[in-house]
Design a protein around this nucleic acid. Structure first.
Lengths: 372, 372
DNA sequence: CTGAAAGCGCTTACAG
DNA sequence: CTGAAAGCGCTTACAG
């Protein structure tokens, strides 16, 4: 790896910790403890705690509330979450373990989760190396933070088996292993069947399947459901490839496989994710293979790019935002000590048909309309 | 928002906390305290602490080390990070604040950061709503966890002004405000100038600039440097647009602007990020605008997709992995109490010329070669 | 309504 | 080499 090529040492110092008057800067929230606030306000630390945690109802006089509030503001006090969590035996942290944060799909999941868990919990992401599934050892380290709850997206069976968690936990997109813990899932099997039906209806008889290399269960379910339905409908899945969830990796896998697939008479490539499909679309164009005339391409997810790509990508739409939200809400209930009433939710998938499987000119106005 | 369409209540219960024998499951790491380990091993809690934190050299006998190790394994003990951090006054958490985790660019930054900070620190991501810049209020909440250090990617000036942090902090991609704290930056201004020179050399005289809507300083620097150099080279930046860092948003912005731009004689669109450029490439194809013959398109980042897209995207390559790594190392030094020797590093940007600005047929073998 | 006290689980001088 | 003790900053019964 090359060294920094233009190192620019600078003399600009850090801002000093103390302002000219020698006071702690307001809002710094550092080194100021509840005891200092208590001293300033002329009350006990217990009263400060009651006020800062909002448990004043019938327990603290308005006069003291005001005094504490004033002192908090003056000193820029922020409750030390470490001490607080230790005393309570539990933090307000919720950790989301996701296999691949760089996939735009997770942006939506995350947004939903935030909404679902509510503002009193702090959402933190545990990130793994791109393309790697999280190791249970990594998660065990996270557990040292005593999170209030855990959210695990697209887990593998091995991961869950190794992981021994008794904290509140909710699984997301755990098709195939949803019974291991409360979970919110997509009906990816149904999506895969709709895909097979659509391809059969378009006259495809020989197709290839481009899978994801991660050992995630949801991909196994997608694949097996597609294979089964394809067989039932007289479609021959003549070839298989696999790649990590990365446009470049998928493109490479397709490029290498295509001559053989073409020779086998493959007329459609079913991809485990939209990201895989993008790689196929690109390389098909480079290779001069017309989509959809010579080759149909499909994905799973319905990422934003799938609508704007040309041709648009026929894909199984998975409601990411909703999954995140429901999982967050489920976890919130669990963290509140509730017993999950319906611990296993499954969200419908919808087939969205676009130009990558149906020529818009031939098909008329059918492009872009959900056909689920 | 529609309700879950296929709710599937299930009776599958959670795994019970105790195994049949009534023992805590090995590896659960819950409720087991250092005191319990000490009792089991027949030593004091202090000795347990010394062993688990690896400070045994000359302080703990091998016999006791073995006894503690055995007890730790038997009970599945995991140090409670809350208590540990509280006692030490500092956690081992490093928080990375990034504006948009769903951008593949950050996957590389994150990988670099992990490498840079080393295994003893735990990296957690603070995520903001997609397209939103992080609020200093959000970060202040994070500070309650007393992180060992803070990494802030692509900060805005306002964000930094509001944020009062005296913890170790390193800025990433903070061109324009790099002096606010130790930082690792890209020389985006140089990249922008190379872009202008390349376009000038290709004969462009009228171009449009598609900016990012986030208030991030690095985008201001990119834009201003490009405008200045363009003016110097006789290029008229006749039009401007903006969109969030999202393919769909950029596509929409381009579609709406293109008739006007075309009318103004625009022959090239310079985009603030590759993601913006993808939207432009797509819509150009839809509109039947030939790239690069009728319209040249450029980006910033050099995401993986830029190499495989068709045409390939001419872009300013920013070494994300290296930036992350250097920032991580810088922070590690700061957290170790070192005074940063060279607190402001700037990494070179490189111009990568591909088919979106130079027709490969006309240009011969020049496609895809770095031209910085 | 209020405060003194115990305790959360750990680490670190300190005395032996 | 070892352990008793104090303390990190907070919260929560408890007694008043």
């Amino acid at each position: 790896m090359p060294p920094p090529t233009t190192p620019t040492p600078s003399t600009a110092g850090h801002s000093s910790e103390l302002s000219p008057g020698g006071q702690l800067p307001a809002g710094a929230g550092r080194r100021v403890t509840a005891a200092m606030v208590a001293a300033r306000a002329g009350v006990s630390a217990a009263t400060v705690s009651l006020v800062t945690s909002g448990k004043t109802a019938g327990r603290v006089s308005q006069a003291n509330i005001d005094k504490v509030d004033a002192a908090v503001t003056e000193l820029g006090y922020v409750v030390n979450g470490l001490g607080s969590s230790l005393a309570k035996g539990r933090s307000n942290i919720v950790i989301l373990v996701a296999p691949d944060v760089s996939n735009p799909f997770y942006a939506k999941v995350i947004a939903g989760v935030r909404e679902g868990i509510g503002p009193e919990f702090q959402l933190l992401l545990s990130v793994t190396e791109a393309g790697h599934t999280p190791e249970s050892a990594d998660v065990r380290r996270l557990l040292a933070l005593r999170p209030a709850g855990l959210l695990v997206d697209a887990p593998s069976a091995r991961f869950l088996a190794e992981l021994q968690v008794s904290d509140p936990m909710v699984l997301l997109d755990a098709a195939g292993i949803e019974s291991a813990a409360p979970s919110v899932n997509f009906d990816v099997a149904h999506g895969a069947r709709m895909l097979a039906a659509h391809l059969a209806q378009q006259g495809h008889r020989t197709v290839a399947y481009l899978d994801s290399t991660t050992g995630t269960e949801t991909f196994r379910v997608r694949r097996e459901a597609f294979f089964r339905e394809a067989a039932r409908l007289g479609i021959d899945v003549a070839a298989q490839g696999e790649a990590t969830i990365d446009v470049g990796a998928a493109a490479l896998a397709f490029t290498e496989a295509w001559p053989g697939w073409s020779h086998q008479g493959v007329t459609a490539v079913v991809c485990a994710t939209d990201t895989h499909a993008y790689g196929v679309l690109q390389e098909a164009r480079v290779a001069g293979v017309a989509v959809p005339a010579a080759l149909a391409v499909t994905g799973f997810d319905d990422l934003p790019y799938s609508e704007t790509s040309n041709p648009g990508l026929t894909t199984v739409q998975l409601p990411a935002l909703e999954m995140g939200k429901l999982a967050g809400e489920l976890l919130r209930g669990l963290m509140a000590g509730e017993q999950a009433a319906a611990p296993h939710l499954t969200l419908d998938a919808a087939l969205v048909v676009r130009g990558s499987t149906v020529d818009p000119v031939l098909a008329g106005a059918g492009q872009g309309l959900p056909a689920g």
